[in-house]
Design a binder for these strands. Structure first.
Length: 102
DNA sequence: CTAATGACCATTA
DNA sequence: ATAATGGCCATTA
């Protein structure tokens, strides 16, 4: 698995997201001390070698689901399954479900 | 080494 | 409100 420190940090931060909560790429980027690397965060999650990492709980800062919605189309189902309400392709209670990663 | 890609974000029209 | 533009980062070809 040859992962870089950046990726490890991304997965680590992503696994901190509790069930029924969502976070954003930007927040993860902030958590790993690279606030401008939100794009790289997305790339890291795209590789996502760990199934235990809840990458589906990560959404756009706008509250939309973001990528990988049209492909597997499971993201919405997964989030709803975990208790996150989705409304018209975006998080219903985004600020309520949003979990800052400190 | 340079160039291109991508699950993004913020600003501007 | 949506659409387009610029910028930023890490990985891959």
């Amino acid at each position: 698995m040859q992962l870089t420190d950046f990726e490890k940090s991304v997965y680590n931060a992503c696994s901190k997201i509790r069930k029924g909560r969502v976070s954003t790429y930007f927040e993860i980027a902030k958590a790993i001390r690279n606030p401008k690397a939100s794009r790289a965060v997305g790339n890291a999650l795209n590789k996502n070698p760990f199934r235990s990492v809840p990458c589906h709980r990560v959404v756009c800062s706008d509250g939309k689901l973001g990528g990988f919605v049209n492909g597997p189309r499971k993201k919405k189902s997964l989030l709803e399954q975990e208790g996150v309400a989705i409304e018209k392709g975006r998080i219903a209670d985004f600020k309520n479900a949003f979990q800052p990663l400190c």
